[in-house]
Structures are given as C-alpha cells and as structure tokens.
Design a binder for these strands. Sequence first.
RNA 1: GCCCUCGUAGCUCAGCGGAUAGAGCACCGGCCUCCGAAGCCGGUGGCGCAGGUUCGAUUCCUGCCGGGGGCACCA
Length: 572
Amino acid sequence: MPTTRDLLHARLQPAFDRLVAGSDPVVRPSDKADYQSNGVMAVAKSLGRPPREVAEEIVAHADLAGLASVDVAGPGFLNLTLSDEFLSSRLRDLTTDDRLGVARRDEPGVVVIDYSAPNVAKEMHVGHLRSTVIGDSLSRLFTFLGDDVVARNHIGDWGTPFGMLIEHLLDLGEDSAISELAIGDLNSFYKAARVKFDEDETFAERSRQRVVLLQGGESETRRLWRILVDQSVAYFQEVYAKLDVLLTPADAVGESYYNDMLADVVADLDAAGLLTESDGAKVVFPEGFVNREGEPLPVIVQKKDDGFGYAATDLAAVRDRVVNLRGRDLLYVVGAPQAQHFQMVWSVARMAGWLPDNVHIEHVSFGNVLGPDRKIFKTRSGDTVKLVSLIDEAIAAADTALRARGSQLAEDERLVLATQIARAAVKYADLSTERQRDYVFDLERMIAFEGDTGPYLAYAHARIRSIFRRLGNEPWSAPARLALTEPSARQLALGLLRFPEAIDEFTLGLAPHKLCVYLFDLAQRFTSFYENCPVLSSDGEVRAERLTLCAVTASTLSLGLSLLGIEAPEQM
RNA sequence: GCCCUCGUAGCUCAGCGGAUAGAGCACCGGCCUCCGAAGCCGGUGGCGCAGGUUCGAUUCCUGCCGGGGGCACCA
C-alpha cells in the first residue's frame, strides 16, 4: 500500500510533467493544511511565468478526485486537504491491517547488520549500548519489512591478549576460572591477567608463547580459548536478555571466524597487483587518504611480524557478506571513530572487485553517550560504566517511581513492569536523538513518565488499552464510515495514516529517531483527542468511531515501539 | 596541518531547499463531583559568526569560531 504522500505525489505528477517533464511536486506534510506541494515555484521559475498562474494551471489539470481538495496559497504553494471519504476508508483499512499500512518489500533482500561487538573476557560497558540498541532496532525494522536479516555480532575473540588470558585461566584452574567468568566478573579477570602480564616477566613470556600456540591451532590451547569465548558469550547473552535484545549466541560471529580467510585476502590482493610492501608490512594504498605529513595512508593487511591487521579481518568479512551471505545491504552499527577505517577498507574492497556497486554498504555511526559533565560517560572513579549496572539502576529507578505512585502490583509483577519501563526509558532515550549527535545520559529525565520519554509512550498505550478493559465483552465494530468531524479526531486520524511515512523515513535514513518523533507526536494527538472526545460515555456511531480511533492508535503505538525494541505493556 | 562530525529557546531535543523555526523539561496562568491529571489548554523564550548559490537557506557550498573524534602495523 503506497503512503498518502506517495498517492498525492503520483496524482500531482502528470500535471507537473505537462509543464516541465520530470519536475517534482515536492509533497510534504503541512501545518497549513494536511499536506502541501512546494514544487510550483521551481516550475514557474524555469518557465519564466508567474508562480500563481502556474499553480492555477496545475490545479486545473491535477486529478485529485476522491483524494484531496487543493487551493493555492502564498507565492504558489498548493495546500492539500484530504477528503473525508479518503480519510474514512483509509482508517477503516487500518483496522483490519496488522501492518498498519506499511508495505512489505516487493523484492526482499539480505540485510547484514553488524552490531554490539563486545570483547571476550571484557565487561560490556556503556560504550556498547548504542550499537546494541540501534542495531537491534534496525534488525526488527528490516525483519518487519520482509527482508532477511543476518545479525553479525563481531565480538573481539582473537588477538594477542588471549595469550595472557589463557595463562591466567590456567593459573586459576579451569573450574574456578569458569565460575569467576560465569558470575559475570569479567573485568577483574581481565585486569588480573593484565597486571600479571605487566609485572611478571615469566608470565608475560608464557603468554607470548601461548599466543603462538593459539595461532598455530594447537588443540589444547584452542580448547582453553573456546572456554573463554563460550563463557563470555553466555554472559553477553544475559546482558542481551536483560536489555531485551534479539541477539543470540549463533549471531556471535567474531574476528576468529575469518581467520581461515585471511591468507586468501592477502594472496588475492597480491595477485590483483594491489599489494605493496611498506616498512616491512604488506599494505594497500587506497586513493585519497593521507597521514599527518601528507603522505599516502595505507591499509595494513599484514603486519611486519606477519600477523594480520584488523583491516584484513574486515576485508574478509566484506567478502563473506557479499559472496556467501549475498547481502544486499551491509550495515555497520559501529562508533564514529571507525569512519576512516571503514572508508579505507571499503575502498580497497572496491579496488579488488569484492564490493559490487549493487551492494549497499553503510557505516551507521553514532555519537557518544555523555555523563552529566558532558564528557564521555564514566563513573565517579573514572571507570567505564558496566552495561548491567546501568540497566539495574534504571530498573531500580523505575521501581521507585512505581512505588511512589502507589502501585498495587505484587512485588514480582511490579519488578517485571519496572524492568519493562527501564528498558523503554533507556532505549527510547538512546534512539530518539539523531544518531550522529552525542547525548547526555540522564536517568531521571529518561525514566520520567511525563514528556518525550519511553515510559510516557508506554503509558499512553496502556491508557488506551484500559478503555477496552472497561468495555469488557461489549461487541463493537468500526462504522462503515467515519465522520471525523471533531478537529482533534481528524488530526488523530491524519496522524495514524502517516505511520507508513514515518517507517519510510526510519528506513531510508536508518534513523530510529524519525519513528520516535512520529510516535511522540501521535501520542500527543491522541491525548488531545481523548481530552475532547469522551469515548465510553458516547454512543452509537460516534462511540464506534472513537473506539476505532483508540484501537488503531493503540496498535500503532504498540507496533511502532516494538520496532524500536520497546515493549508496550497492557497495564502500568 | 589534513579529514570526519556536532553547534537551534535557560536545559534536553525535532526541523526531509519553502509560508509566522516546532516539541519536551523548567517557569507563569487556567482546567479534575467527568473514560488513568503519568494529562489537557494558553504564555514567556532561539537558528555560533561571516560570505556565497537560489525566486526562497536552520537546511546546500566556502571560510572562521567552539565541542568531540580520526590520521601506519592494539583491534
């Protein structure tokens, strides 16, 4: 089903083409009318004719019958007002459409989304929050659109630190090491290994030898390494469960997965004549990148010690995702500091012919999470904030808020609700800001039940659902025709019809905040309607119409929030 | 030094080349014998600076200022 905006555009297009072929009607939502077309002035300019005269001519030739009325305003805007018939029939359609007007992909494709990416034997911290939450939301969105989503949790499960981690594991004894890791005490494990490595030369030497054994594939070493990885992945899974994120252990396809492909990456780059030796390292120089001295900047695929750089891994991953996974879209939900690295690696991939033009590859970068001091979010003591403690604090705050308003729920039920509210708060705060911007982590603000917050939206939904609880078993159905005479009801209906457009914007811009902005606006339209239009005390057609608006609003909020990874409880 | 990114109301944020730049929080003033006031209605208050492109610039381009980040073997 095309969006309202698309329909208007399509109906206006012939009248624009008639004057200037290929000109754009530029249809936008409007605060002057329902929609407006801004394309007239440009057409008039290129024809050298007065804009209002051109506007009148376009109006005369545009077939908007049954869809909208139009009038010319200002210097040549076309103000479009949707017809009552159209609003009514569209809204009726929505009552029986569980996609709420959002079209399924005509041609589904594979969307590979790289996100979260914690490190083995290291705590997940606030730095993983945005990647995890944004990636999860994109996963849900593309799945909903009908694409085949492949999540790639590119965990850090390889490299020199594993020498010391394995040696530390042996020192502790497997059993006690496993139990330490199982309780999620990853930081102290890593730090203890690090301290020994720095202070104990014998240990450091053992660690270096262990790295050699690991890279050589020695079976006992590999078994020990596997323990570290499995324990960590199990721990990550607890964090994902707490956050209600869809990632599974099967998605944890980390750096080590590409090990066997790295030699081929180097050999193939060499065969293609792209490889250069520079300072002992094997590198490729993509065009357009220079260092501080203005000299060409290389992508290092193999270091002078023969180890592979992470660029080699990323090149192998691009190849794997193009050739084996057949990805149409390759998305990397990774922090902004990696921007240049990706540009360089992809540039090399294109030079090597591994990245065809029909594959859409994009770095879905994002800004930092800041503390109250507007610096990178840290604890008072300067440590990074553990992701679990961040969520736990949010849950505690939500629980306090629930108790403060005299929640009648039993302790365990209240805790479930507090957890849902906490997730809604943290995720919405993260997703509702334009991705590239930094944002300040302010628990008090995000957990608030008033204002532009996750809890507010969840509440708006719960409040509507309560209407239907009060309705009990009383049967009702959408009227054949909705009058929408009350302005606030009409505004709400208009908002409901816009849902597919919000999804379009979300998808096109990989911009969850577009959906957030839409949902908050919708919730405000609803409360305004609810204030002006009593539902349960009305009757007949009016009551049926109002119930219809309530039902579709609740569905839209619920579906919209679900695409953000946020639950909408029936009751709060 | 070069490159990327951000700069909108006191604070937190929207604004897809178009009309008087919109919300939320805070503040001020109205609304609860009435479906959940976690709300509604109204008010105060703003595009970092300077050029340019355009019929029209918060939006695009250039320069400057300010914050953050990156710039060869840790990923």
